[in-house]
């Protein structure tokens, strides 16, 4: 059996000025083809999007056992979340 094309993780930024978001993965021989494949597979060629591709091997991830220490401190900082604040309706959209 021949060698499999590497796996790439695909991140796409839509038109609304958001940050790149993970949308899925695919296989491609190299980064250039991974971008083209991402365009064909995940955007069906919407103009004006930005695509990042990262070879899956190159992603470093936190270990599941670190879940506690890494995430819990921020969970207690609920003031970072907009829904923490109770804004009166009269103020309008914020």
């Amino acid at each position: 059996m021949s060698k499999e094309w590497p796996l790439w993780e695909i991140f796409i930024r839509g038109q609304h000025g958001l940050s790149h978001r993970h949308v899925g993965s695919l296989h491609a021989p190299d980064a250039e083809m991974a971008i083209k494949n991402a365009r064909d597979v995940y955007t069906r060629r919407n103009e004006g999007v930005s695509i990042w591709v990262v070879e899956a091997n190159n992603i470093a991830a936190s270990a599941p056992s670190e879940k506690g220490p890494l995430y819990e401190p921020s969970e207690s900082k609920i003031y970072r979340h907009p829904t923490f604040y109770d804004i009166p309706d009269d103020v309008g959209h914020m």
Binding site: H27, N37, D40, R44
Partner: peptide, 11 residues
């Protein structure tokens, strides 16, 4: 030959 090409050709 491979799914990614199948999808691209259809596009």
């Amino acid at each position: 030959p491979v799914l990614e090409e199948d999808i691209a050709l259809a596009n």
